[in-house]
Each structure stands twice: as structure tokens, then as C-alpha cells.
Simulated assay, not measured.
Amino acid sequence: MPPTESGIDPESGIDPGSEETFGHPLEASPDNALDDTLDLHLPPDITALFSEELLSATPADSPSGGVLLDHIADWGPAATVAGPFQLVPVRIERDLPLVSAWMNDPAVAAFWELAGPQETTAAHLRAQLDGDGRSVPCLGVLSGVPMSYWEIYRADLDPVARYYPARPHDTGLHLLVGGVADRGRGIGTALLRATADLVLDHRPQCGRVIAEPDLRNIPSVAAFLGAGFRYADEIDLPAKRAALMIRDRVHRHLL
């Protein structure tokens, strides 16, 4: 079961190391999380990789472009207040150094527990990429720059479905924001809303987008509420007591 987001900045919607991942307990962010956080700047050669041609380069028949999640690679961008935002399925040979660097940020490592050599992150990514496509790791690319990591997953096919009344095609979100410069900018809630909208726009059989932040993480829960999710229940997961957050298709234009 994926971990959930770490602390979320009430202003941005996502705070240092914000996340939802596979089965790690969520705890309150350390008081010195910002001081310990690595400020990673992407070199021009990395950002240049995310050209328009590359954004469409994931093979449609790969798990990350497959039917269980309605071909995420083909979803295209969503408009946000910070610029166009797109989910780009991870390619290990291209993205591993960047994602591994994010995982070694102390503010992120405290929650995702994937700090260490690149192979640690690679094994986490391969478990999804070599699977049947029920969980797709993605880079969040904002205005052409990769700045966050997302896992879009079939909650109804995930172990989390044992802990709440899952419905067919329920889709879950896990995330982290990479660089310090992209935190605290007031865009977190907007990205959560945009990603939920991408799911609902491109997955016609999906009636709900879900998330399970740690119940103690009040700023995180507030960010999901701001993104149109409702506080549906409290659930006991193996590693935490979580707030079950749901964004319903039928209410998406009201919240």
C-alpha cells in the first residue's frame, strides 16, 4: 500500500516531502525539515529532455501506457494557475537520477523511506513498471520542467481496497514535490485539483479519485479539501490511521 503525503504547506497545498506512497507510516514533518532539505536545481540538459517530442515518447503498449489506467501517456497537459501541468510516465534510464535525488532529500526520505543508492529507487520504480500497469509512476512536469513525482494507481486493485468500501475503477494518488523552489509557492492545491481532473477527464469509468493522508497531517487534509476532495472517513491502515479523502465525479464542479 502506497505511503501518503508528508506535511503539506497550508499555503501551497504541498509541503516539503509531500507524499503518498506504498505503505510507509506518515508522521509530522520534523521542525527542521526545511533546513535539512536539499535545494536541487535542474541543469539545462535535464530540462531540455522534456521537449514536446519526449512528452509523447512512452510506447502506448507499455504498462505505463496501458489499459488499466487508460493510457496516462496520452492524457496531455492540464491548465493551472502556475502553467501547463502534465503527468509523464517515468522512464528509468532517463529519470532515475532525478527521482533518486528527490528521494534522498531528508524531508522526503522521512516519509518515503527510499533514501540510499539509486538502485533503491530503481527497485521501487521497477516494481511498478514491470507490473501489470495498476500503478504508474510519473513525473509531474510544470511548464516543461519536471518538479514532482506522482503515482497514479488503481485503488480498487490495491491492498488499500481492503480497508475502505472500494468501488470499481477507484483511482488513487500519491505524490511528492521535488525541489525547494517548488514548495510554498501556493500551487500545491492547484496541482492536486488538476491531477484529479486529469483522472476524471481521461478515465470515464472512474467515479472517484481517492487519497489516504495521515490523519495527524492536518495541512495535508486541508490541501485535499481545497482541491475538491471530501473528508469521507477515518480508516486504520497497517502503518497509520488515515483520512479517506474522496473527490467524486458527480460533485467535481461543485467543490
Rank of each mutant, 00 (worst) to 15 (best):
L215T: 05
G7S: 00
L142D: 03
D45N: 14
S18C: 10
L54K: 10
R126W: 12
A73M: 10
P219E: 12
E234A: 15
H251P: 02
D201Y: 05
D158S: 12
P97F: 04
D15W: 07
V177R: 15
W150G: 04
A223Y: 07
L225Y: 04
D9W: 02
E52K: 09
L142N: 02
L96D: 11
G179M: 07
G116N: 04
T58G: 06
I92V: 15
C138T: 06
D36W: 01
L55W: 00
T47D: 02
E27Y: 01
E93L: 12
A161I: 07
T171H: 13
H24T: 10
H124E: 00
V199Q: 15
L125G: 09
G17S: 01
L114E: 03
V108A: 15
D197P: 01
I246K: 14
A57E: 01
G179R: 10
A232L: 07
D201H: 13
D170H: 10
P44K: 08
L129S: 12
G207I: 06
A239C: 05
D45F: 11
R183G: 02
V160M: 08
K240F: 13
V221F: 01
A48Q: 11
G76S: 11
I8E: 05
E151A: 08
L142A: 04
T4G: 09
M147A: 11
G7R: 06
S64K: 04
A223T: 05
G144I: 11
L42C: 03
I235Y: 01
R185T: 09
L98G: 04
L68T: 11
L139W: 04
L254M: 12
D182W: 13
G13W: 03
D197M: 15
G83D: 09
V145I: 12
G65T: 03
S62C: 05
D39I: 00
L98P: 01
M147G: 06
R162F: 08
D201T: 15
L255R: 11
L200H: 11
R91W: 08
A127Y: 03
E20F: 14
G186F: 09
I46Y: 02
G207D: 15
H251Q: 13
T58A: 14
T80N: 03
D130L: 08
P16G: 07
S6A: 12
L114H: 04
L40S: 01
A115I: 00
H251D: 14
A78V: 13
D158A: 09
P219H: 06
Y164M: 05
I187Q: 13
G17E: 00
A161H: 10
P238D: 08
E212F: 14
A194T: 01
I246E: 13
T37G: 10
P84C: 10
G179A: 12
F229Y: 12
R167Y: 13
G7M: 00
L192N: 03
F85Y: 13
T120P: 02
R247L: 13
S62D: 11
H41W: 00
M245T: 06
D39S: 05
M245H: 10
A155S: 14
V136H: 11
V108R: 08
I246S: 08
W75C: 13
A190T: 05
G83R: 03
A166Y: 04
V177P: 00
G66P: 13
S18D: 00
Q205S: 15
K240H: 10
W75I: 11
W102N: 02
L55Y: 02
I218L: 14
I187R: 14
E113H: 02
S220F: 08
E151D: 11
V81D: 00
T120S: 06
Q86H: 04
